[in-house]
Computed example of a mutant assay.
Amino acid sequence: MKKILKWIGIVLLIIILLLGGYIYSIRGRLSLYKSIGEKYMEIAKNPPVINSIEELSTMESMDYKDVEYNNINGIVQTLDIYGPKKDIKGGSPVILYVHGGSWAYGDKSIPDVISPVLDSFRDEGFTIISTSYELMSGEEIFGKQISDVKDTIRWIHKNKENYGFNTKEIGVIGTSSGAHLALMATYTDDGEFKGDEDLAGFSSKVKYVVDFFGPTDLNTLDLSAGGGDINEAIKSAEEENKKEEVLNTYSPINYVGKNMPKTLIIHSKADKIVSYNNSVILYDKLQNTGNKVDMLTLETSNHDLSGVKDEEGLEIAMKMLKFIVRNSPL
């Protein structure tokens, strides 16, 4: 009996030591979960109130503003860096934000509606970067815009030592046309869509991408609804008998294969600008090719986020939080 109790004691001691070691090894993730839980409670008590994109205030407290990342034919593109609020072993994971605006409007200011989510990650050692890209003005430049976003990722890889980035842990969040560019930039190979020659030799690989209302098949869009500039740009391609080629070449759905970045899709059935089916076909094709993909379907939100209910705003925040936490290295 004494021997049995002795062995039970030894086994329990081993279990306790192993459990203690495991808890120690995931202490960073536990801290992140705690921070996320606190942020969840804040969001649950005060859900985001969204009337339209145009009314959103923007995220503040950046550490570096208008950092030049590429210069092509004298046209400079810049990015903003919202640095981590604490140091973590292995370097700072990076979340890159790509703005929307029908490829012709908008800027790299981060909407305040997602800033509480992003700030919770900054608290745990993440870096948030928002990037600009050349906007269309009467001429189709999808390729240039995609290379700008890819160059941003290449710049992150190039400058990992200067800023303490963990380049194995890069995620990209894109909204609307920014989601389209994010998908194109992350679903294509390193050698495609090269921009600045000084960045051409660097990787454009990322770990995951979050797609908000992104067009995945440009053939399905009523591009005239996007405004005069994008409409004129597509007309210019049509006049050169290149419209079909352009729409197919720059549709993310045509680049889905194996080993895509993990993808979270967020889209509304009520979207009248980008058909909800764009996200359905992307989700299905990613699943059929063995990729990891998740999707949140909204019921009431319009493309500009107007009409979204409080509970859907909360769903958006929580889906993003959970997805990024699952892909966290901590």
Rank of each mutant, 00 (worst) to 15 (best):
Q145G: 05
S120M: 15
G138E: 10
D80S: 09
V94M: 06
G171F: 04
Q145P: 03
D107A: 10
Y69H: 07
G101M: 01
S204G: 10
I81Y: 06
Y105K: 14
K205Q: 01
Y82M: 10
A200C: 12
D66E: 14
D189W: 05
L181Y: 03
P111D: 05
G83N: 09
E124R: 11
N159M: 04
K86M: 14
R122P: 01
S102R: 03
Y97F: 14
D123Y: 11
Y208K: 14
V149Y: 02
I146Q: 04
A200S: 15
A185P: 06
S203E: 02
I75S: 12
V67L: 12
L79P: 00
V172G: 00
Y133N: 01
V172Q: 01
T167C: 13
H157L: 08
S120Y: 08
V117L: 15
I95R: 06
V149I: 13
F142Q: 12
D112E: 15
I153D: 00
G106N: 08
I129G: 01
D87A: 15
K89S: 15
K144N: 08
S109A: 15
L96N: 01
A185C: 06
K108D: 02
V67H: 05
I170Q: 11
S177M: 13
W103I: 07
S132G: 09
I128C: 03
D119Q: 15
G174M: 12
G91V: 05
T78D: 03
R122L: 02
K108C: 04
V206N: 05
L181D: 07
A104R: 09
